[in-house]
Design a protein around this nucleic acid. Structure first.
Length: 440
RNA sequence: GACCCUAUCGUCCAGCGGUUAGGACACCGCCCUUUCACGGCGGUAACACGGGUUCGAAUCCCGUUAGGGUCGCCA
C-alpha cells in the first residue's frame, strides 16, 4: 500500500507556522516512505475563500520546498482538490449515511447519529486512547450539514480523506478529541479509518496557542525578514521531534532520512524566535555561495542596489555571507560598495573619526595603501598593521576609523575583504574624502 | 463543568530502572580578534508535588496541582 498524506488548510490569507509544521511532517512522512503528498483546500466557508488566500498557501509551501503530488493547481486522480468544488461527492456520501439510517434532520440541519459506543483511537504518536461516546450530553450528535446546504468540516474532511485514499492523517493535537467522531463517520460510511498521528501544538511565549498576532506566527514573516527556508524547516522539525544525538543543524535531505513519528514527543512547544534566528545564521554560513546568491539577490534587487552585473555583485555577497544573519540585512551591508553617495552613520563618525589624530591616521594609511601593488586582503592587512605599528597605535585604532571612512558604518563585512572588493582607486579616494570629516 | 493530552534548566530537545541528569538557544565571564559575527574555553540554570512498586526511580503505577486541547449550524 502506498503511503498517502495530505495538508488540508483552509484559505485564511495566512499560513500559520503550526500549519506549516503539520504540512512538513506530512510531507516528510510521505517522502520518507516513497508515497504521495496531497494538497487539499478546505474552503467550505466561502467567506474566506479568495484567490489571494489560496496563493498565500501555495507561495508558503513552495518557499519551504514542500512539493505536492496532487492539488488544486496540479490536478490528480482524486480531484477536484477544493472542497467548494466537491459538492456532488458529499451528496453521494450523505446518501450512503441516509440509506444506513445514520442521520436525521434537526431544525433544517442534518446531524449524524452517534452509535454511542466506546471508540478506540490507536494513535501513532499518542498510543491507544479510549473514548466513551455513550453519553449524548457530553458527546452530542454532530451536525454535518447546515440548513443552507453548506457542509461542516468533520464530514467533508472524512469524506475527502476516504475519497482521496489517504492512508495516514498527521494533524495537530487539537483534533485528537475530534477523532472518535471521525472514526464513527468512517465506520458508518463503510470505510477503514486511516492511521492517525496527533502532533503537539506550537505555543507562544505566554504558553497560549500561537495566534496571528504573535510575531513569527506567519510564514510570510520569515520570508520577508530574510530567513532561509532551510533554517525554518530545520527549526520547525525540531519543535516536537528530535533526530537524537543532540543534532541541531540539519539539512532537508538529512531530515527526510531521519524523520520518524516514533520520536515525536507529546508536549506542546513554545516557539523560540532566538533559536530560529541562530539556526538561520548557521545555515547561511554552511550553504554554498551559489545558494546564498540565489536567496539574497531578491533582497538586493528589491532595495534597488545599483550593482550593475551579477558578476560585480558576487564578490560583495561573498564577503558578507560569513557574517550576515538575516537576508534582509544584506542590502545595508553591501550598499556602500556600489555608490560613492553612501550614508555616513553619525554615531560611527563621532566615535571613530572625531578622535584627535584620526585625520593623520587616515593620511598615513592612504600613503601606505598607495604603494600596495598586490591588492588582496592578506597584503592589505599586513600593510594596515604595519602602518599602525609605525604610528605607535593599536591595530584597532586604525581599523575603526578606516572602516567608517570607507563604508560609513561601524559594522559590516571583514575590513580587509571589504577593501579588496572596493579596489585601490576608490579606497584612496574615500580615505582622502574622509579626512575632511576627521579630527586633526 | 465533562472528556482527552502533557509535565526534565527561562526556551527547544536527550534520557526510556543504576548517569557527576547530557546537548542547543538565550544569559554571564574569559580567550581569539578590526567592530559585529564566527570559533574556543568555562559558568549560572531543571527532573511540579505527594504517595506507592523496587535493592534502586527523572524513568513504572496512583493521586494532587499546573498547563494545553476538545465539547460549534468555525476549520
Amino acid at each position: 500500500m502506498t503511503v498517502r498524506t495530505r495538508f488540508a488548510p483552509s484559505p485564511t490569507g495566512f499560513l500559520h507556522v503550526g500549519g506549516a509544521r503539520t504540512a512538513l511532517f506530512n510531507w516528510l512522512f510521505a517522502r520518507k516512505h516513497g508515497g504521495q503528498f496531497i494538497l487539499r483546500i478546505e474552503d467550505t466557508d466561502e467567506k474566506r475563500n479568495t484567490a489571494e488566500a489560496n496563493q498565500v498557501i501555495f507561495d508558503g509551501l513552495n518557499w519551504l520546498g514542500l512539493d505536492w503530488d496532487e492539488g488544486p493547481d496540479k490536478g490528480g486522480d482524486y480531484g477536484p482538490y477544493r472542497q467548494s468544488e466537491r459538492n456532488a461527492v458529499y451528496e453521494k456520501h450523505l446518501a450512503v449515511l441516509e440509506a444506513g439510517g445514520h442521520v436525521y434532520e434537526d431544525e433544517g440541519a442534518i446531524r449524524f447519529r452517534s452509535p454511542r459506543k466506546m471508540v478506540v483511537v490507536e494513535d501513532m504518536v499518542c498510543g491507544r486512547i479510549e473514548f466513551d461516546m455513550s453519553n449524548p450530553a457530553t458527546h452530542p450528535d454532530m451536525t454535518i450539514r447546515r440548513p443552507d446546504g453548506s457542509w461542516i468540516f468533520h464530514f467533508v474532511n472524512v469524506v475527502d480523506d476516504i475519497e482521496m485514499k489517504l492512508t495516514h492523517v498527521i494533524r495537530g493535537e487539537d483534533h485528537l478529541s475530534n477523532t472518535p467522531k471521525h472514526i464513527e463517520l468512517y465506520n458508518a460510511l463503510g470505510a477503514t479509518p486511516p492511521k492517525f498521528g496527533h502532533i503537539p501544538l506550537i505555543l507562544n511565549h505566554e504558553g497560549k496557542k500561537l495566534s496571528k498576532r504573535d510575531g513569527g506566527s506567519s510564514i510570510t514573516y520569515f520570508m520577508d525578514l530574510g530567513y532561509t527556508p532551510e533554517a525554518v524547516i530545520n527549526y520547525l522539525c525540531l519543535l516536537g521531534w528530535s533526530p537524537g544525538e543532540n543534532r541541531e543543524r540539519l539539512d532537508v535531505a538529512e531530515i527526510r532520512e531521519l524523520f520518524d513519528l516514533e520520536h515525536i514527543n507529546r508536549r506542546n512547544a513554545i516557539f523560540d524566535l532566538d533559536k530560529c534566528f541562530w539556526l538561520n545564521g548557521q545555515h547561511i554560513l554552511a550553504m554554498s555561495l551559489e545558494r546564498f546568491v540565489q536567496l539574497a539577490k531578491p533582497f538586493v534587487d528589491k532595495a534597488g542596489i545599483p550593482y550593475g552585473t551579477e558578476a560585480a555583485l558576487l564578490p560583495a555577497l561573498a564577503i558578507v555571507k560569513p557574517k550576515v544573519k538575516h537576508l534582509s540585512d544584506v542590502p545595508d551591508w553591501i550598499g556602500f560598495l556600489f555608490t560613492e553617495d553612501f550614508a555616513m552613520d553619525a554615531e560611527a563618525v563621532e566615535k571613530s573619526l572625531k578622535k584627535p589624530g584620526a585625520a593623520a591616521r587616515l593620511e598615513a594609511l592612504s600613503e601606505a595603501f598607495a604603494t600596495v601593488t598586490d591588492w588582496a586582503h592578506a597584503s592589505l592587512e599586513t600593510t594596515l598593521k604595519a602602518t599602525a605599528t609605525t604610528l605607535g597605535i593599536k591595530t584597532g585604532e586604525m581599523v575603526h576609523p578606516a572602516r567608517v571612512a570607507l563604508s560609513g558604518r561601524s559594522v559590516g563585512p571583514g575590513l580587509y575583504e571589504m577593501i579588496e572588493v572596493l579596489g585601490k582607486d576608490r579606497t584612496l579616494a574615500r580615505l582622502e574624502r574622509a579626512k575632511s570629516l576627521a579630527a586633526e
